[in-house]
Design a protein around this nucleic acid. Structure first.
Lengths: 311, 311
DNA sequence: CTATTTTACGATCTGCGTAAAGATG
DNA sequence: CATCTTTACGCAGATCGTAAAATAG
C-alpha cells in the first residue's frame, strides 16, 4: 500500500462533503476520476470506507477509524510540505529590500551579484528610497528588511547597527575651502551656497538635527545624489555627504573634506519588523549583508582619506 | 506535490544508507528506479535533498530538515496503515448488537464465545433490551444490528427473518393445566393468574396482538424472564414464553405446554439500517448468526417437545 | 424523472527495469 | 579504473477525462 497525499486529500474531502461530485470539484478532478481514486484507496486498504448509493454517501465504521487517522495525518503532512516549500523558497523565492540611495549605490551592487551567484533562482527587488520611505516600506511589509539610518520609531522594529559613516564637505577644487584638511561645523555653515537634500533624506535629517535650532542656508534642495554631484561639479555650490555617498562624487574636480560635526556618525542599520520571521531567502541575504560589514568595515572608517579616492 | 509513502520510505532509506545502491535494495527497487524516485521527490519539493557524487552521498541542509519531518511523519503513517490493516483483518474492531432477552439468553452466549475465539481483538458490546429498545438502538446507530422480533417500521430498515419460534404456557407442576399436552388461546386466557411482560417486550406485543381486542387478565407485569421464572416456580402464576425463552425456565417443577394461538409464530429477525454498510467485524458476526440459524434451525421448531427439555 | 455514482474505454502520464553513459576519487 | 550515479528508452500499469450505463428516491 502506497498511501499518497492525494488519496488522503480526496478521502478528507469526501468525508467532509459526503458527495462525490462536490468533493471531486474540490480536488479539481472529474467525478469519475475521483470515484476511481476512492475505489483504489479502498482497494489498497482492503476495506470499504464509504457506504454509498446515488442518494447518500456516508462513512463506514472503518471509514470513521480512517478519518480519525487522516484528521491528524493529513494536516501534519501538509504542514511538512509547507515547511519544505519555505526551504525551497531560498532557491526560487523573492527578497525585497529597501535601501538608502547612498547604500544602494555603494555596497549593494556587489552584494546583489554575490547573492545572485549563490541563489540564481531568487528574485531580488530593491527599492532605493530615502530614510522615511525605507521605514514605511518595512512597516507595511512591502520589503523584508531595509538598510537605512537608525530610527527610534516604536518597538515594532528591530534595528541592528551594522556600521557608521561620517560626513564630508564636498566641493569643487576651486572652492575657497577646497584645500582644507578638515572643517568645523560652523565653517561649513558659512560655506554658502550649500546643496541640501529632501526632508525625507537621512542625510538632511541628520544634518538638521546636528545644527538644531539653526537652519542651513540652502540654495538648492535636491532629491538625488547624482543631481547634487552635477551641481557641485558645475561649481554651483558645495554639499555634505556621508562616507557611503562619496562614490557618487568621484570626479577629478571635486574635493571631499572631513567635517568635525557635533554628532559626526551616521549609523547604518538593518531594519526589520520585530514579529516577522524573515524568509530563508531574506535570511540568506541578511547574512551576506552582515558578512560584508564585518569584513569591509574599515572602508567606512573616516580615518581613511577620501580625498585621495575622489581624485 | 503528491508526497507518497513510497517516497518517504525511499528518502528514509537513502538518508540512512547514504548509498543509492544499498537503499534501492532495501526498497526492492533497481538502483536506477530508485535514483529517479529520489529525483522526482526532489523535483516535487523543488530542492535538492542530497548532495551526491559517485563516491559520497550526504544530506543537504534542506535534506536535514526533511529528514526531521520524515522521522516523525513516516512512522506515523506506517502505524496508521497498520491500524487499518488490523481493521481489515478483523484483528481490531467493534461490534455493537442489540438483542431481545430471550435471544441473548439462549443463542448469543455460544455465538459470542465462538466469535471471541476467532477474533479476540474485536470488542463486543451487546445490549439486551426489549423489542422497542432494539429497534431504537438500530435507528439511532447505537448498534450495528439487532436480533429481535420482526418489525413493520418504515423502509429505513432491512429485516431478515432468521427463524421463528412459538409460544408455550409455562406453569408449576401443580398447576391445573400442567398435565395437558396442548392448550388453546382461550384456555390460556382463563388460566388466571398469568404473568405478562412489559409493554416494550416483543412477547407482550405479540400476545396482545393475538387476542386483540381482548386483554390479558394479568396479575403481574414483569421486566425480565428470570423474575417471571421465579414467580412461576413459587407457584404464584403461569406465564407464556416463546421457544427461545424456555431455557430460563428449566426447573424440575415447571411444565411447558405448546399453545395453539391464532398467530403462533414469532419471527426472529436480524434488523439493520438499509443504507449502512456493516463494518467488517459486524459482517463477520452476522455471518456467524446466520450460520447458527441455518444449522440449528430445527431446535426452534415447535414440533420438538420442550416439555422434555424443561425437566 | 432527476440527481448521483459506477462502468467502459481510449489517451496520457508515471514508474520500473535493462543497459549504456557519465562522473569521481 | 573501479565504483557508483545518472540518463536513455521501452514497456506495463496507473490515472485521467469523456461518455454511457446503472441506481435510487
Amino acid at each position: 500500500m502506497n498511501l499518497s497525499l492525494r488519496q488522503m486529500r480526496a478521502f478528507a474531502a469526501l468525508a467532509e462533503a459526503r458527495n462525490f461530485t462536490r468533493a471531486a470539484e474540490q480536488c479539481s478532478l472529474t467525478q469519475s476520476a475521483f470515484s476511481s481514486l476512492i475505489s483504489n484507496l479502498e482497494a489498497g486498504l482492503g476495506l470499504k470506507l464509504f457506504s454509498r448509493n446515488t442518494r447518500n454517501v456516508e462513512l463506514t465504521n472503518e471509514g470513521e477509524v480512517f478519518l480519525n487517522i487522516v484528521n491528524t495525518l493529513l494536516p501534519e503532512t501538509e504542514r511538512a510540505l509547507e515547511e519544505m516549500r519555505s526551504q525551497a523558497e531560498l532557491r526560487r523565492g523573492k527578497v525585497a529590500i529597501a535601501a538608502l540611495p547612498t547604500i544602494y549605490s555603494s555596497i549593494l551592487p556587489s552584494l546583489i551579484s554575490r547573492f545572485h551567484a549563490e541563489h540564481p533562482g531568487v528574485e531580488l527587488i530593491i527599492k532605493d528610497t530615502a530614510n522615511t520611505g525605507c521605514i514605511e516600506h518595512v512597516r507595511h511589509r512591502r520589503v523584508d528588511f531595509a538598510l537605512c539610518a537608525a530610527t527610534s520609531e516604536g518597538s515594532d522594529f528591530i534595528a541592528e547597527t551594522l556600521a557608521s559613516d561620517s560626513f564630508h564637505f564636498v566641493c569643487h577644487a576651486s572652492h575657497p575651502l577646497a584645500k582644507r584638511r578638515s572643517l568645523t561645523a560652523s565653517e561649513v555653515q558659512e560655506a554658502f551656497p550649500i546643496i541640501v537634500y529632501d526632508g525625507a533624506s537621512s542625510i538632511r535629517q541628520h544634518l538638521d538635527a546636528v545644527i538644531y535650532p539653526q537652519q542651513w542656508r540652502r540654495s538648492y534642495e535636491v532629491n538625488s545624489l547624482s543631481t547634487a554631484a552635477a551641481l557641485v561639479i558645475e561649481g554651483l555650490g558645495a554639499t555634505i555627504i556621508p562616507t557611503l555617498g562619496l562614490r557618487q562624487f568621484r570626479d577629478p574636480h571635486l574635493r571631499a573634506i572631513p567635517i568635525d560635526l557635533p554628532i559626526n556618525e551616521r549609523n547604518i542599520c538593518l531594519l526589520r519588523l520585530k514579529h516577522r520571521t524573515p524568509s530563508l531567502a531574506a535570511t540568506a541575504f541578511i547574512a551576506l549583508v552582515r558578512e560584508h560589514f564585518e569584513t569591509e568595515l574599515d572602508r567606512l572608517r573616516p580615518s581613511n582619506s577620501f580625498r585621495a579616492k575622489l581624485s
